[in-house]
Lab assay of single mutants.
Amino acid sequence: TFVALYDYESRTETDLSFKKGERLQIVNNTEGDWWLAHSLTTGQTGYIPSNYVAP
């Protein structure tokens, strides 16, 4: 799992909003700078900017 370093507000319907400190499970990280992730807090799935999270 990864932890959010910053808050992120989604800009498209495929993005995932999250708050700093939220735990995220990475589903697919082969898309370059945008990873498909599942929030362990909200249960939602969407794309996140990879530079906003850390292991």
Score class of each variant (00 low, 15 high):
G46L: 01
H38K: 15
L24F: 15
A54V: 15
T12E: 13
R11E: 13
P49K: 07
W34D: 04
S50D: 03
L16G: 03
V53G: 03
E22P: 00
F18Y: 02
Q25Y: 14
N51F: 10
T14P: 05
A54D: 09
Q44W: 07
L5H: 04
A54G: 10
Y6T: 07
L24D: 00
G43M: 07
P49R: 05
Y6K: 09
W34E: 05
G43K: 07
Y47P: 01
T1F: 15
L5A: 04
S39F: 02
V53S: 02
T41A: 13
T42I: 01
D33I: 09
G32V: 11
Q25P: 00
S39V: 03
T1L: 15
D7S: 06
S50H: 09
V3R: 04
S10H: 05
Y6H: 09
A4Q: 01
L24K: 00
W34A: 06
Q44S: 09
G46H: 01
D33N: 11
S39Q: 05
R23N: 09
L16Q: 02
R23F: 15
K19C: 08
Y52T: 07
P49T: 02
Y8A: 01
T45L: 09
N51M: 10
W35M: 06
G32C: 11
T1E: 15
T41G: 06
W35Q: 04
T1V: 15
H38V: 15
K20P: 02
P55C: 09
Y6Q: 10
E13D: 14
I26Q: 03
H38F: 15
L36W: 10
D15M: 07
A54I: 14
Y6L: 10
D15H: 14
K20R: 10
E31Q: 13
W34H: 07
G46S: 01
S39C: 02
V3T: 09
E9N: 10
F18H: 01
W34S: 07
F2W: 15
E31F: 13
F18N: 00
V3L: 08
T41F: 08
Y47F: 12
N51V: 08
D15W: 06
V53I: 09
A54M: 12
T41C: 14
T30R: 10
T41W: 11
D15R: 09
T45H: 07
P49A: 04
P55D: 09
L5G: 03
D7G: 04
G46K: 01
E9G: 04
P49W: 05
S17T: 11
S39R: 05
A37Y: 01
E13V: 10
K20L: 05
T1D: 11
E9Y: 10
F18K: 00
V27F: 12
K19G: 05
T12V: 11
L16I: 12
I26D: 00
Y47I: 06
I48D: 01
G21T: 02
P55M: 10
Q44E: 13
W34C: 09
N29Y: 13
K20S: 07
W35G: 01
R23I: 15
N28K: 11
T12R: 14
Q44H: 11
Y47K: 06
L5S: 03
L5W: 04
P55A: 11
D33V: 08
Q25D: 07
N51D: 13
S39H: 11
G21E: 03
S50F: 08
I48Y: 01
A4M: 06
Y52V: 07
I26W: 02
I26M: 06
I26E: 01
T1C: 14
S39I: 04
E9V: 13
P49G: 03
T12W: 13
G46W: 00
E31S: 13
Q44G: 10
L40F: 09
D7N: 07
Q44L: 14
E9P: 05
L16T: 03
T30P: 10
T30A: 13
W34T: 07
E22L: 00
P55I: 10
G43C: 10
H38R: 15
F2T: 04
G43T: 03
T42F: 02
H38M: 15
T45K: 08
Q44C: 10
N29R: 14
T14C: 15
G46P: 00
V27T: 08
A54R: 10
T42P: 00
E31N: 15
H38D: 03
L40K: 06
Q25R: 15
R23A: 10
T30E: 12
A54H: 09
L16E: 00
A37T: 02
T1S: 10
L16Y: 05
H38L: 15
E31I: 13
E13M: 10
P49V: 01
R11P: 09
V3F: 08
R11K: 14
V53M: 06
E31T: 13
L36T: 04
Y52C: 11
S39Y: 01
G46M: 01
E9D: 13
T12S: 14
